[in-house]
């Protein structure tokens, strides 16, 4: 382990990995995460198939979608908790000022904190692979879709992590930062879906019952609906059979990646002790 850590040259990552793996909280979190994931999925599988004498691949596909959505919700529950205390914790521990007088730039500090927290989140997701393997065996899902789901998790983790990171840089107290990060994450998780449904109902009321293709742009902002759309595209068109104008996950990436980058920028700005341009062009000879 020590030899492996030496290969990682970023000191913040080394420190975070070291100290995280030494706490009891880490195995407990891993255990609880797997318990929830495995418990819900295997419990549901048991209830569905206990009295059946045959397997319907369509049912197992539905089970896989449920597993994917549950994992996404769990990511939304865990990520803000992991990230929201990273910078405010340094401030509370009175170690941030010392860190800012070293050669580590605020940008490097912010991104290292994000990567270290998301690495642990990735470990949690990776640990659930056996659950996926079991459900995958039932059939109904292609390997490409499984890969797509994991790619989507990565996008969602970066988004939720960036929200948590921003709150952590913005608020001095970890408590306030965590609560705000959860509120914003749940707004993304539930608020965007509710907004899509609400707008759909309103348009039905105003224009009569029909399809509203433009609502895709609101519905596809919802991570859960967007993820399910990988299997059932009508989830982002709110039941209509209209073809989405753009692949839902691409739209998700186009919208949320710039949002995440903006949140990193604001976090770095907030962290800089003396406000200066973040990216400075090196002069000749430097």
């Amino acid at each position: 382990m020590q030899k492996l850590l030496r290969r990682v040259t970023n000191p913040i990552l080394v420190k975070e990995y070291r100290s995280r793996m030494r706490t009891l909280k880490t195995p407990v979190t891993l255990f609880l995460y797997l318990l929830v994931m495995g418990g819900v999925i295997f419990g549901f599988t048991y209830l569905q198939y206990a009295r059946n004498v045959y397997y319907n691949p369509g049912d197992s596909r539905m089970l896989f979608v449920m597993l994917a959505a549950l994992q996404l919700v769990l990511i939304a529950f865990v990520t803000p908790g992991l990230v929201a205390g990273t910078i405010s914790g340094e401030r509370e521990r009175q170690t941030l000022n010392i860190l800012l007088t070293t050669h580590l730039s605020p940008l490097k500090i912010v991104l290292s904190k994000l990567v270290s927290s998301l690495s642990f989140m990735a470990l949690l997701v990776f640990a659930t692979l056996p659950v996926y393997a079991v459900i995958f065996l039932f059939g109904g899902v292609s390997p490409g879709q499984v890969l797509g789901v994991f790619g989507f998790y990565l996008m969602a983790m970066i988004l939720f992590g960036s929200v948590g990171l921003f709150c952590s840089a913005w608020f001095k107290r970890t408590g306030v930062s965590t609560v705000t990060a959860y509120m914003l994450t749940f707004a993304l998780l539930g608020g965007t879906g509710l907004a899509a449904v609400f707008l759909n109902e309103m348009l039905d009321l105003l224009n009569g019952h029909g399809t509203h293709p433009k609502l895709f742009y609101v519905a596809a902002l919802n991570p859960v609906l967007n993820l399910i759309a990988m299997f059932e595209p009508e989830f982002v068109t709110l039941g209509s059979n209209v073809e989405p104008p753009i692949t839902p996950w691409v739209y998700f990436l186009i919208v949320y990646l710039p949002v995440s980058i903006l949140l990193w920028y604001l976090s770095v700005k907030r962290l800089m002790p003396v406000k200066r341009p973040i990216f400075t062009r090196k002069r000749k000879g430097e």
Partner: peptide, 8 residues
């Protein structure tokens, strides 16, 4: 005033 990191 300065703090130190736990578990190091």
């Amino acid at each position: 005033f300065f703090g130190v990191y736990d578990n190091l």
